[in-house]
Nucleic acid binder design. Structure first.
Length: 594
RNA sequence: GGUUCCGUAGCUCAGUUGGAUAGAGCAGCAGCCUUCUAAGCUGCGGGUCAGGCGUUCGAACCGCCUCGGAAUCACCA
């Protein structure tokens, strides 16, 4: 038996059939966990069954409770509160459940579905380093991919790097003019930061030139168009497109620096990819789909040669698919890459982790694909996440309020180290270990802080609060894990074994803990279905919190009864493993000591 | 104006398909380290779930309307 709720639903169904016969056919049976304030483990809501029973809620609940207690051996007792039948399951049942979970090979890994899912995330531009917004993207993407794996799917993590276009040319021009040949090696800067520096440099000079031009009498509009430096960047883009060797070489060199920098950031963040895509190689995809669309009459060509789709009937607008000069746009490219991916990997689902500023884009993308007749359009999911705001408002690069990803991670780790020092947690003997733990805790705080929030919501990132390690935080959960592991080490030293003997009595909190552990697969399933790591984050917190309360009130190692002690050890060990599993799916490491 | 999303305690957020008296954390106050890790535990105060109408035995959750906020609607990506 794996699913307790399923079993109780079945048993309640039998009770209904026995008590009320035909009338009870198809009556909705609602089993849910009993709320903490009431006695019992699971609750049957009897209101929907009153039609079948023809009696009041209390009598109905009473009758069903009696039948179940008499006929289902796992049901040890019941009580009725208004229309709620609270069922208690026997200690034997719960102990058996714990024993089963301990033996289950793949607990926390759902059976293989045979489905292949691609998760695209990160997808950075190569003209500047990653910032706070990217952190949310990367953490979400990685975690969702891991959760989908745990749901039994085959998962391909993809990253589509935007490595071409005017923005990278801006950095290139600025570097050529003002860089004096500076390299990551010569400057000691990370490659992405170096290139980002010249992107800012470009903007500075661009603005200065605009100012000059307007002072000389041009309109703002003209100045923006005619500033020499922007003309130079545009010229460079044309040269890039015609594969001018000099420009192409510089482009490759500077992108190479950026990739080295990104790799370091990804590594620090703990995210990875199975498949890299580069826009420079995919931007021409999708043109054949335009041809198809024209044939099917889904797309229309304007007199100037540009191709459009009219979506006004769907409450949207006209959307461009091909410019009048025949070149493609973002949408065209995305249609093409989606098509290619489904074809190449026989995908069942494709998930894009992209900010909510592109909701419209993905709405249109899916609509166009289904108008072209592709059934798999429905298997595209835009995992849209909200912006990360700072206490002083949105991040604005102009106002210098951008929170750099590398800086933030370093700061979190440094604070974690300082904190553990203040708490006297570091034994001088093992500096390397302290270093590792500091990284785990600092990163754990950051990751948990971001992942515990529902992805689609705009969230506030308060650096002061994120660095708080008390309460509903990653470090609290990590701490609970470390504490259990410490008990396990001491138990091993004392020669105590963790095992569950039949007939060991259980406390209320112990039954609750087993029940929570038992919910892990359900929590993973729900997180996968909703693409929401937040569900798992909150699950892990609840479990850790319950354990901490239990741990405070009942001793494990000092328990005199060997059978009870063994059972408690087994339970604690399972708690630690469950916490580790849930946190692992969030990309958060849990230390053995902290 | 169209589309999509959000609005829950002073602040940051949970609330899984409609269920019992709406929950945590932070901040504030009061306690608890001679005992398995105090990054912890216990208690107190704090709510018109933006507002209204409807559906239902029952609504924070579903439907309609209003108010407030965000994103987006380029021959940019």
């Amino acid at each position: 038996m794996v699913n307790i709720e399923e079993f109780l639903t079945r048993s309640a169904g039998e009770a209904l059939a026995a008590l009320y016969g035909e009338k009870a056919q198809g009556a909705p049976i609602q089993i849910q966990k009993t709320r903490k304030e009431f006695q019992g483990d699971y609750t049957l809501v009897v209101f929907p069954l009153l039609k079948a029973s023809g009696t009041g809620p209390e009598q109905t609940a009473q009758a069903i409770g009696q039948w179940m207690q008499g006929n289902a051996q796992q049901v040890s007792g019941f009580n009725v509160v208004k229309g709620f039948l609270n069922l208690s399951l026997s200690d034997e049942f719960w102990a058996g459940r714990l024993a089963e979970i301990r033996q289950a090979e793949g607990f926390g890994q759902l059976p293989a579905t045979g489905k292949t899912v691609m998760v695209e995330y990160s997808s950075p531009n190569t003209n500047k380093p990653l910032h706070l917004g990217h952190i949310r993207n990367n953490l979400l993407g990685y975690s969702v991919a891991e959760i989908l794996k745990a749901c039994g799917h085959k998962v391909i993590k993809a990253n589509l790097v935007n490595d071409r276009g005017i923005h990278i040319c801006k950095s290139m021009i600025a570097w050529l003019r003002y860089g004096n040949g500076e390299t990551p090696r010569s400057s000691g800067m990370k490659g992405d930061h170096l290139v980002g520096k010249y992107y800012v440099e470009f903007d500075k000079h661009y603005k200065a030139e605009i100012k000059e031009l307007t002072a000389a009498g041009s309109s703002e509009e003209e100045a923006k168009k005619n500033a020499p430096i922007i003309l130079a960047a545009q010229d460079m883009l044309r040269k890039w497109e015609s594969k001018d060797p000099e420009v192409y070489g510089l482009w490759e060199k500077m992108n190479g620096w950026v990739y080295e920098g990104f790799d370091a950031t990804y590594k620090a963040m703990g995210v990875d990819f199975d498949k890299m895509y580069y826009e420079s190689q995919t931007y021409m995809l999708g043109k054949e789909l335009v041809g198809q669309g024209l044939e099917k009459g889904v797309f229309k060509k304007d007199p100037d040669g540009s191709v459009w789709i009219d979506l006004t009937a769907d409450g949207l607008d006209r959307k461009l698919l091909l410019r009048s000069d025949g070149t493609s746009v973002y949408m065209t490219q995305d249609l093409g890459t989606a098509y290619e991916r489904f074809r190449e990997f026989s995908l069942d689902d494709l998930v894009y982790v992209v900010g909510n500023e592109q909701n419209y884009h993905f709405q249109v993308l899916k609509l166009i694909l289904s108008k072209l007749g592709y059934a798999w359009a429905d298997h595209i999911t835009h995992l849209s996440y909200g912006m990360v705001e700072l206490p002083e408002g949105r991040m604005k690069s102009r106002e210098g309020t951008v929170v750099d990803a590398d800086d933030l991670m370093e700061e979190m780790v440094a604070t974690a180290r300082q904190m553990s020092e203040e708490l006297g947690k570091v034994d001088a003997a093992d500096a390397a270990e302290a270093e590792k733990v500091g990284r785990m805790v600092g990163m754990g705080a950051l990751k948990y802080f971001i992942l515990k929030v529902d992805p689609k919501k705009t969230m506030l990132f308060d650096p002061k609060e994120s660095i708080d390690f008390n309460g509903n935080t990653g470090p609290f959960i990590q701490y609970t894990h470390a504490r259990i592991r410490s008990v396990m080490r001491k138990a091993a030293e004392a020669g105590y074994k963790a095992e569950v003997a039949a007939g060991t009595p259980l406390l209320e909190e112990e039954r609750r803990l087993i029940s929570q552990i038992n919910d892990l697969p359900a929590a993973i399933g729900a997180a996968g279905e909703n693409f929401s790591p937040a569900l798992l984050a909150n699950y892990a917190y609840e479990l850790a919190k319950t354990f901490n309360g239990y741990y405070h009130d009942h001793s494990i190692l000092h328990e005199a009864d060997p059978a009870v002690r063994s059972m408690r050890l087994a339970l604690a060990e399972r708690c630690a493993a469950t916490i580790a599993r849930a946190m692992g799916l969030l990309g958060i490491d849990v230390p053995e000591k902290m």
